[in-house]
């Protein structure tokens, strides 16, 4: 049996699944308990697991992240919510200097099994401080695992895997996808971090995408198909660990590669992926790799401006067709 649920419902489903399984899993954050989350990703958890395990915090991002770090050191497997990923800037010391480095700096004495969930990405007209795609911030820091699912099923499977992972995971939930629906099977779902998914296969080009860019890449692939171009679409799902095997094999099969990135141009995840392709699969390429990204600008709020900034289906289609001409 399978059920159609939203991406935001999948978050609560995953957390419930893991909190049911392991009494050491706790959830804290601003407005996560009584209010069920600003994005309504955690409703019902307070009622089901009680006020000790689902707890509202003050507006104290450093205290929230510090608290899950200290708790992970002392026997819990806590999950923190940072309401908007942009707010990670206010607690980046805890994330990048402390959580990411503590196992290494202590030579393995201290383990930090924790998850930081955060609403990421644009397309919702919130402007430059509530819309960023910041997965590349996390990707650039050794010691953090980085997950960004695109479907309800992956939200459940990968959030469960993140909670069970013995290392710190930053879990990016895409704001633009919260209302999207997808099928999820009944029963427990647990995925594997570091596995990309080939969501469409075709011999003419490979489109690499993440989170909200995945449905756009798929739609673009459908439109390209109408023009006789059959593309492979790979949903990376995780940036760390990175499934280079799947990426490189798609490159070998198609010879043409496009990345679709919501982040601003410089140092986006695609830059790293493209450099790996250049080093390891150069002779598989039939044409230059092309990155389709947001311009290197802060995101504007107006719908007209924002839509023209973030990679669109049209831009993907046009870029691929022009390149294949």
């Amino acid at each position: 049996m399978a059920e159609l649920i939203t991406y935001r419902e999948a978050v609560a489903r995953a957390l419930a699944q893991e909190m049911e399984r392991d009494p050491n899993v706790y959830l804290i954050g601003e407005d996560v308990a009584a209010a069920g989350g600003v994005f309504k990703t955690t409703p019902g958890l307070l009622e089901r697991f009680g006020e000790r395990r689902v707890r509202d915090t003050p507006i104290s991002e450093e205290a929230i992240i510090g608290a899950v770090m200290g708790a992970a050191m002392n026997g819990l497997r806590p999950v923190a919510e940072i309401m908007f990923s942009d707010f990670l800037a206010t607690c980046w010391d805890l994330v990048a200097n402390q959580i990411a480095k503590t196992r290494y700096m202590t030579d393995g004495q201290v383990a930090l099994p924790l998850v930081i969930r955060t609403a990421n990405g644009g397309g919702v007209r919130f402007g430059a401080q509530h819309s960023q795609s910041l997965e590349n911030w996390a990707m650039s820091v050794p010691g953090l695992k980085v997950v960004a699912p695109s479907t309800p099923k992956d939200v459940i499977a990968l959030l469960a895997a993140s909670v069970r992972d013995p290392d710190p995971v930053i879990f990016f939930e895409h704001k633009g996808l919260f209302a999207s629906r997808g099928e999820v099977p009944d029963g427990e779902l647990v995925g594997q971090l570091g596995e990309a998914s080939v969501v469409r296969s075709g011999p003419d080009a490979t489109i690499l995408a993440l989170a909200a860019m995945v449905p756009k890449a798929l739609q673009a692939a459908d439109e390209l198909s109408a023009q006789g171009i059959e593309a492979t679409v790979v949903d990376l799902r995780c940036l760390v660990p990175l499934d280079t095997r799947t990426i490189l094999s798609a490159v070998a099969d198609t010879g043409r590669v496009f990345t679709v990135e919501e982040n601003p141009r410089l140092c986006g995840w695609g830059a790293e992926v493209v450099s790996i392709i250049a080093e390891e699969a150069f002779y598989d390429l039939d044409s230059p790799v092309v990155r389709i990204t947001t311009d290197h600008i802060p995101l504007p709020a107006s719908d007209i401006l924002e839509d023209a900034t973030i990679p669109s289906v049209t831009r993907i289609v046009d870029t691929v067709t022009r390149s294949l001409d």
Partner: peptide, 13 residues
Amino acid sequence: GAHLPIAVGAAWA
């Protein structure tokens, strides 16, 4: 300052 909230978390656990 980083370890003040971390100590809070250890106490919470």
